[in-house]
């Protein structure tokens, strides 16, 4: 589904990513983990097209997307939820989700301005799809509120909803559970599993909570200082000495082995 091939990304002399390769299979939940500053978000930015690679290639669905701008990747079916909420905060929840359907809709300036016949029909049709997502994420009660006024946990949910509205083939979630209490985390984990099962969406997930990562994901890639230090199933990752070293330090590795 997604092949990341020898990706490098430099900011001046600093290597945010160096020679990272991994592949994501269709229909799996894939976790990207690593200590702070390891380059996880940079990796997602490269996949969604906000950063352009210094070297390497990204192949999505058999198509080389390395040079495509971000909005074209969205058209191909890559959607993204951000770590620091990037919602349109003056728009209501509904409008945010409707915007998520932008690439699935067609009407232009004239049709929209006249709002008669086709454009109106299109709006109503897509409203059904959006209401389905609102039901699914249990945010009915806030649908007409400007998202800027919502609580943090709800905003996170709306952000996932906006990405879902695009009907993505590949959904990139950057720390969807950061800053949540355990109840909210459970809700979010349930949503992620449901998205995965009911909508058959491939999901790439950045998460710090190891419990969540090990429970949800089929494959895990570990980054440290911009380099891939581990790739495999959750069990393999837990047993990988390099990963233990990166997370827990040198001495604990000796303890584990000793």
């Amino acid at each position: 589904m997604l092949q990341v091939i020898r990706n490098s990304l430099y900011f001046g002399g600093v290597a945010a990513l160096s020679d990272v390769s991994f592949s994501v299979e269709r229909g799996e939940i894939f976790a990207l983990i690593g200590p702070n500053g390891a380059g996880k978000t940079s990796m997602l930015n490269c996949i969604s097209g906000l950063y352009h690679l210094s070297a390497g290639r990204i192949v999505f669905d058999g198509k080389d997307i390395t040079r495509l701008p971000a909005y074209k990747r969205a058209e191909l079916g890559i959607a993204r939820a951000f770590q620091n909420i990037e919602l349109f905060k003056h728009m209501t929840v509904l409008e945010n989700l409707m915007l998520g359907r932008h690439v699935r809709m067609k009407s232009g300036v004239l049709a929209g301005g006249i709002y008669w016949g086709k454009a109106q029909k299109e709006e109503v049709e897509h409203r059904y799809a959006v209401e389905e997502i609102i039901d699914f994420l249990e945010i009915e009660h806030v649908r007409n509120m400007p998202v800027g006024t919502l609580a943090y946990g709800l905003q996170k949910r709306v952000e996932v909803g906006r990405a879902l509205a695009l009907e993505p083939k590949l959904l990139l979630l950057d720390e969807p559970m950061a800053g949540m209490n355990s109840e909210e985390k459970e809700d979010m984990a349930r949503f992620i599993l449901d998205i995965h099962e009911e909508r058959e969406t491939t999901i790439v997930l950045i998460e710090h909570d190891m419990g969540v990562v090990m429970e949800l994901s089929q494959h895990v890639a570990v980054l440290d200082f911009g380099m891939l230090i581990g790739f495999g199933t959750p069990e393999e990752i837990q047993a990988n000495p390099k990963v233990i070293q990166a997370y827990l330090g040198e001495e604990s590795l000796l303890e584990v082995q000793g």
Partner: peptide
């Protein structure tokens, strides 16, 4: 009318958060 339909929403999105707008396909 424009601002309750697709193009108008996209314009408001550009104002509110252009980065996110681009990632959503604008």
């Amino acid at each position: 009318n424009l601002f309750r339909s697709r193009v108008g929403r996209a314009l408001v999105a550009v104002r509110d958060r252009d980065l996110a707008a681009e990632v959503m396909g604008i």
